[in-house]
């Protein structure tokens, strides 16, 4: 019986210690605890808690504002830490719109790497800030959006290089098929913006084309 009592004692103490450790790490040691702990408003420190922007129309809950507290609805943060800064004024009300619609990333997450999408098993990492306009197209395909100039340059390029001949875009184009009637259809590009951008993709794609030994597209373009 003594052995069993020791088993009970030691196991229980182990469980106790781990439970306390888990409680401490969950309630005090997360990165956002430190960030919010330093944030100040005119009235003094803010209360440290999880925050989120819920956008019921898009069925999104973005918790980015747990660290970027300056952008949380109704917060007026004064401190000069970079994460806690407010959002610059843009057309949309960021406090109702949410973050990931434009910036991509994993809005549900509350830890930096997960939120920025730099983890395994999250397929849409954050867009680099300068490409954030790329997401306008997610909702406003045919409308004029702030990046209109870039967009029209891109549209013209698309037109000029005659990408429409094989690729369909917003219901236009895609009439030609490499290899004739039975050939392969060019992929529809209407929604490529939806899943975020990989800025290296086009370079890699062009490179692949250079390296490719044949294939319908090359043959069609007069290659081997």
């Amino acid at each position: 019986m003594k052995k069993n009592k020791y088993l009970l004692l030691i196991s229980s103490l182990g469980v106790l210690a781990l439970l306390v450790a888990a409680a401490v790490s969950e309630n005090f040691l997360k990165e956002w605890h430190a960030i919010q702990g330093q944030a100040r408003t005119q009235e003094g420190p803010i209360d440290v808690r999880l925050r989120q922007i819920v956008n019921p129309d898009l069925k999104k809950a973005d918790r980015c504002v747990t660290c970027h507290v300056g952008m949380a609805p109704g917060e007026q943060i004064l401190s000069d830490s970079k994460v806690a800064q407010p959002h610059k004024n843009v057309v949309h009300d960021t406090a109702t719109m949410g973050c990931t619609t434009c910036h991509g990333g994993q809005g549900q997450a509350t830890e930096k790497d997960d939120a920025h999408g730099n983890v395994h098993f999250w397929t849409e990492p954050m867009l680099p800030a300068k490409y954030a306009y790329a997401s306008c197209g997610t909702c406003h395909t045919p409308l004029n959006v702030p990046n209109l100039e870039t967009l029209s340059t891109a549209r013209k390029t698309f037109e000029r290089l005659d990408c429409y001949s094989c690729h369909r875009l917003d219901g236009r184009g895609g009439t030609l098929r490499p290899g004739g009637e039975t050939g392969m259809e060019g992929p529809d590009l209407s929604h490529v913006g939806l899943k975020g951008y990989n800025q290296n993709w086009y370079t890699a794609h062009a490179q692949k084309n250079v390296e490719a030994q044949g294939g319908p597209w090359r043959r069609f373009q007069g290659g081997q």
Binding site: L7, L8, L18
Partner: peptide, 18 residues
């Protein structure tokens, strides 16, 4: 006697899982 053994194993299993 048996209950100490059972509780001991219960907490040991809990420890392993945790």
């Amino acid at each position: 006697h048996l209950f100490y053994a059972e509780l001991g194993v219960l907490m040991f299993t809990t420890l392993i899982c945790i």
